[in-house]
Amino acid sequence: MAPSDTLVLRVAGRPVARYVTRPELPARLSPRPYLHPVTTLAGTAATELSPADHTHHLGVGVAVPDVEGHNFWGGRTFVRDRGPAELGNHGTQRHIAFQLRDPGGFVSELRWVAAGTELLRERRTVAATELTASAWALDFTFALTNVTPGELSIGSPATNGRPGAAYGGFFWRARKEDRAPDVFTADRAGESEVHGTRANWLALAGAGWTLVFAGATEETRRDPWFVRAAEYPGVGSSLAHTERLTVAPGDSVVRRIVTVVADGRLDRQEAAALAGKAVGR
């Protein structure tokens, strides 16, 4: 892989994330750019790449299991009245160019292509900023524009008949440890309590790290959180929770999530304070 295909993000002079634009991956994994490894300021890893339990989980990025029936998530496709199935319907997110790139962040253009046709054009804006001596924030915005002449429909396994599986959108695969991480919001705790809820912020706390995810726009805050802790640690936003999301020709879907990456285990008060600082509230 050429050096121009990767970018290292730095905070206070320390490397905290590596962005891979053109990974060499099999079609079944829905090849796409991703951030991995992402670390705390002390160097503790907070992401996983292609873990054994879900080889299509690729660090931090954007993944959608159903765009007009095309799989941009990777792995099997959930089919109504049939269940998970191996289908040759995987799409690819192709990095085209950087409009801006420096150690503090980047702006890039991507094309979402399936079956030889470009469906979506994405503008991705990512920035890394210092919050405290032990915490920094990854500010991640994506804008998906329908470049086809007709409507595009975005779905999830949940909208296709699998309750509780409304994944699709921004997704962060965290590091799996011997003990499942704690997960909590301002007023709820535990995977079953926070999964599918709408909360201004949500925290995932591991052995020596805490991630605090915050929706930074009104539209993003309306998306329920997709949360896994016991089976594997992962957090994302749900573009299609109970209903499919329709995008008209030329229209865009824009979401912005800011994630606090902190050393140590934060409590509710600390998580709330850092989430507010990260999104300017």
Results as ranks from 00 to 15, higher is better:
3 P>F: 06
4 S>K: 14
6 T>R: 11
7 L>E: 01
9 L>E: 04
11 V>F: 03
13 G>T: 07
13 G>V: 11
14 R>C: 09
15 P>E: 14
15 P>R: 10
15 P>L: 13
17 A>G: 11
18 R>E: 12
18 R>G: 05
21 T>A: 13
23 P>Q: 13
23 P>K: 11
28 R>K: 10
30 S>I: 14
33 P>Y: 08
35 L>A: 11
39 T>Q: 00
40 T>G: 10
41 L>P: 06
41 L>K: 08
45 A>S: 02
47 T>G: 00
49 L>K: 00
54 H>Y: 09
56 H>S: 09
57 H>A: 09
66 D>Y: 08
66 D>F: 13
67 V>I: 15
67 V>A: 11
67 V>D: 07
67 V>Y: 09
68 E>H: 11
70 H>G: 05
72 F>G: 09
76 R>A: 14
78 F>G: 01
78 F>Q: 02
83 G>S: 11
87 L>Y: 13
88 G>Y: 05
90 H>S: 10
92 T>I: 15
92 T>Y: 09
94 R>E: 14
94 R>A: 13
95 H>D: 12
96 I>F: 01
97 A>R: 15
100 L>S: 04
102 D>W: 08
105 G>R: 06
109 E>F: 05
109 E>D: 06
110 L>P: 03
116 G>L: 08
117 T>E: 05
117 T>Y: 01
119 L>M: 06
119 L>C: 10
120 L>E: 06
124 R>M: 06
127 A>L: 06
127 A>M: 08
131 L>K: 02
140 F>E: 00
141 T>A: 10
143 A>R: 14
143 A>L: 08
147 V>C: 02
147 V>H: 03
148 T>G: 07
151 E>H: 13
153 S>N: 12
154 I>F: 15
154 I>D: 00
155 G>Q: 05
156 S>T: 12
156 S>H: 07
160 N>H: 13
163 P>N: 14
164 G>K: 10
166 A>T: 04
166 A>H: 15
168 G>E: 04
169 G>Q: 07
169 G>E: 00
170 F>H: 08
171 F>E: 00
172 W>E: 04
172 W>F: 04
174 A>L: 02
174 A>R: 00
175 R>M: 02
183 V>I: 14
185 T>H: 13
187 D>A: 13
187 D>R: 06
188 R>Y: 09
190 G>L: 12
192 S>D: 14
196 G>F: 04
197 T>Q: 07
198 R>Y: 00
199 A>R: 03
204 L>T: 05
209 W>Q: 07
209 W>D: 01
210 T>D: 03
214 A>K: 09
218 E>W: 13
220 T>P: 01
223 D>K: 04
224 P>K: 06
224 P>F: 12
226 F>Q: 10
230 A>T: 15
231 E>W: 13
231 E>L: 10
233 P>Q: 05
234 G>T: 07
238 S>M: 15
239 L>H: 10
241 H>W: 15
242 T>F: 08
242 T>D: 12
243 E>Y: 02
244 R>G: 08
247 V>R: 01
250 G>P: 15
251 D>R: 12
252 S>R: 10
252 S>A: 15
252 S>H: 08
253 V>W: 12
257 I>G: 00
270 E>K: 13
272 A>R: 10
272 A>V: 05
274 L>I: 03
275 A>T: 10
276 G>E: 08
276 G>V: 11
277 K>N: 05
278 A>D: 10
278 A>T: 07
